[in-house]
Design a protein around this nucleic acid. Structure first.
Lengths: 250, 250
DNA sequence: CGGGAGGTTGAGCATGTTCAAAGGATGTGG
DNA sequence: CCACATCCTTTGAACATGCTCAACCTCCCG
């Protein structure tokens, strides 16, 4: 099994063997979490970050009346952001959606790594761009799109994200989300999610089971969602920028 | 007039005179933009970032049917993120809302600055945390709050942001936004904004004119919005983290 | 003083919610 | 391996929040 953190970072810049070994060593032993268990709670001041090795996790906030807003999802290879170390307290919680495995990295190790070798800082910067861009898309979707387009948008996002880690086969991906979770992500009730999904199925856009979704008409979904893959900023940074991080400063 | 970029950065860590002079020199001459003029367009690949000196700017996206979603606002002292340099193309546009003044900084200068002195990188990281946190609040508001609470939330955010730059007097702030702009920010029509605002005025929550808003019942608004100032992450990073950036590596 | 942008108001409508109930699926303990 | 409990999905009917369209007002600025 490839090291996910390394795979993630090397998409930004090629690291040298010594650097890779360094990262590998920083990561703690893998930890498993059952579905619906929390990894970090709102209010915590984290002293470790982590990277998802397996499974599906989510960031969420619980409101005073008990309702939940899911902010974003973390899939294998994603890291809980380095930024949280600059916060006094988490403004949201992170939990496993399905059974998941993570590996933690201590705050001090990460900070030392970035300070000692700016190429790591650059890699984290890039991941920060991607996270922020996903949140912007969410805002656009919630602010200006109807239920059907919101669902289409979310599925497109998942499609591209899973595609980037080679977990799409035949427009089908493993996505163990309940309709309630989809609703809490997109600002809708589970009931309405159900109705709209069933319309979309009838229109031949998708096929869904509890843990699996097939995007039978991906082009149709994309058109509905009015979203472009480039919005996710998956392509590596422009060469002139990457150049700054190429010659190691370590 | 204090240098806004410096003011902004020094909130993260105290910089030494030589470092401050360095920043000061990097900034280009101030440029002024009239209301509703664009600074960066979706699709551009920016080679400069900028800092807002005066006025009010916004990030926004135009949808295919002409509707607009305003993503976030930039107030004096805010910088257009460093992250954009890692993107191939802007996924949104930035324009002036009212007459505004900015100062640009070349990409290469900023990158060299950060690579040469990680304390700068740290300052930009912190600002990235804040931007991301604001987007998360927006998602919560759009996903799970009704019109009244959304407006309350936005006004609280503006209150705290303007307070942080000493531009609040007597719960009153200068906020030259039209109701259409409020609507495009919060996923509502201008007409509904109008109705809800007038209810809120009748309930004694606020007083508003074209360019000014007075939060007559700030506690009431805060309770409505269910938002906490800490969510914005304005307090400086924890001491153990700041320590890493204290001894200059330049 | 005229024009235009922004604000206000009303009536009808649409999208999505609430509440209630029943039908599947999944998993666990006996 | 069945029985049962739990969680998830599906469906219906009434309702609410916010939208659309259309008109008019008002303030500001030239």
């Amino acid at each position: 099994m490839a090291d996910h953190l390394i795979r993630s970072l090397t998409k930004f810049a090629p690291f040298r063997p010594a650097e890779l070994e360094l990262i590998e060593r920083l990561q703690e032993k893998a930890e498993s979490f059952g579905a619906r268990t929390d990894v970090i709670l709102e209010g915590d001041q984290p002293t470790k970050m982590f990277i998802v090795e397996e499974g599906l996790m989510m960031r969420y906030r619980i409101l005073s009346d008990g309702r939940r807003q899911i902010l974003t999802f973390l899939i294998p290879g994603d890291m809980c952001d380095v930024n949280i170390f600059f916060a006094h307290a988490m403004d949201h919680s992170i939990s496993a959606v399905g059974p998941s495995r993570i590996r933690r990295v201590a705050r001090d190790d990460i900070l030392r790594l970035c300070l000692g070798n700016p190429r790591f800082a650059g890699a984290f910067w890039w991941s920060s761009l991607q996270r922020e861009a996903m949140l912007r898309e969410r805002v656009v979707a919630l602010g200006r799109r109807n239920a059907r387009a919101r669902l289409a948008y979310l599925f497109c996002e998942f499609y591209w994200r899973y595609e980037a880690i080679d977990q799409v086969l035949d427009h089908t991906l493993v996505l163990p989300l309940t309709q309630a979770e989809l609703g809490d992500t997109l600002g809708m009730t589970a009931i309405h999610v159900n109705r709209v999904l069933s319309d979309m199925r009838d229109d031949g856009l998708l096929q869904r089971s509890r843990a699996r979704i097939e995007l039978t008409d991906f082009e149709g979904l994309k058109a509905l969602a009015e979203i472009d893959r480039e919005y996710l900023h998956y392509s590596a940074p422009p060469p002139e920028v990457a150049a700054y991080f190429r010659e190691s400063a370590a």
